[in-house]
């Protein structure tokens, strides 16, 4: 059996269910308690679990992440929320030098089951410091795992895996997805990291969609299908580990690849995926690997300007049609 719920509810259900089954799990962050989270993700949790386990913190990202690490090293399973992913910069030493390296520096001994939830993406007129998608920064830091779910089902299943794991996880939640709906199983489930999923099948091109761009990509897929072009939409779901095998498999079938994400184009997740495809699937490619991503500028405040620099369905359609018409 299954139900239709929002992305935001799915994340809440994952947290609530894990907190019910394990007293070591707790949530802390700015406004996560009484307020219910600035996006309402933790609404109602304060009432069920109280101020000890749903902790409002000062606006202190370094202390939030660092205290999460210390508690994790002592056997707790903290979930910490970075209200806007942009604010993780304040905690960068903790994330990069402490959290990511705790295990390796200690010779593999330290379990650090810390889940860091970050709201990323441009929600509209939030400007340059509340709109970024910084997930690629962390792909360059060994020791972190990175989840970037796009559907309620994946958000719930991946968050459970993050909370139950033994390693630190950065869990990116696109603000534009919070109110999107999707089916989730009724029963308890977890989705392993490193397993891509297909959102539709086709042979014209492989379109790799990351996180918040999935609705845009599915919109483009529908338009392309109307024109008789069937694309394959693949969602890696986690960037670290990355299921490159499934992406290569799809490219072997379609011979064309487009990577779509909301992170900036230069040095974004697409750059790494394109490099891996070039290394592992070049003989199968009939055209260059393309990226559809946000322009290399800070996110502007004006909604028209913002819209102009973010990837949209037309950009995806153009990329796919360009690939199809490409001749070596």
């Amino acid at each position: 059996m299954s139900r239709i719920i929002t992305f935001s509810q799915a994340i809440r259900e994952a947290m609530v269910e894990e907190m019910r089954r394990n007293p070591d799990v707790f949530l802390m962050g700015e406004d996560v308690g009484l307020f219910g989270g600035v996006f309402g993700v933790s609404a109602g949790m304060f009432d069920e679990f109280g101020p000890e386990r749903v902790r409002d913190t000062p606006i202190s990202e370094t202390a939030i992440v660092g205290a999460g690490l210390g508690a994790a090293l002592m056997g707790m399973r903290p979930i910490v929320e970075i209200m806007f992913a942009d604010f993780v910069t304040v905690a960068m030493d903790q994330v990069v030098n402490q959290v990511a390296k705790a295990r390796y520096m200690s010779g593999g001994k330290a379990d650090a089951p810390l889940t860091i939830r970050l709201a990323n993406g441009a929600p509209g007129a939030a400007a340059s410091q509340h709109s970024q998608s910084p997930e690629a920064w962390f792909m360059n830091i060994p020791g972190l795992k990175i989840a970037i779910p796009a559907t309620p089902r994946d958000a719930k299943g991946l968050l459970k895996t993050a909370i139950r794991g033994v390693d630190p996880v950065l869990f990116f939640e696109h603000k534009g997805l919070y109110n999107t709906l999707g089916e989730v199983p009724d029963e308890d489930y977890a989705i392993p990291f490193g397993q891509a999923t297909y959102h539709c099948h086709g042979s014209a091109a492989t379109v790799i969609a990351l996180g918040g761009v999935l609705p845009t990509v599915m919109n483009a897929a529908a338009h392309l299908a109307d024109a008789g072009i069937e694309i394959e939409v693949v969602d890696p779901r986690t960037l670290v580990p990355l299921d490159i095998e499934t992406l290569v498999q799809s490219v072997k079938k379609t011979h064309r690849a487009v990577i779509v994400h909301e992170a900036h184009r230069r040095g974004g997740p697409g750059a790494e995926i394109a490099a891996l495809l070039a290394e592992q699937a070049l003989p199968y490619l009939d055209a260059p690997i393309l990226r559809v991503a946000t322009a290399n500028v800070p996110i502007p405040y004006n909604p028209d300007l913002e819209h102009a620099i973010l990837p949209d369905a037309n950009d995806v359609i153009s990329a796919v049609t360009n690939l199809i018409s490409y001749r070596l």
Partner: peptide, 8 residues
């Protein structure tokens, strides 16, 4: 911060 987290 890690020590503070352990204390928590």
């Amino acid at each position: 911060p890690m020590a503070v987290g352990a204390a928590l």
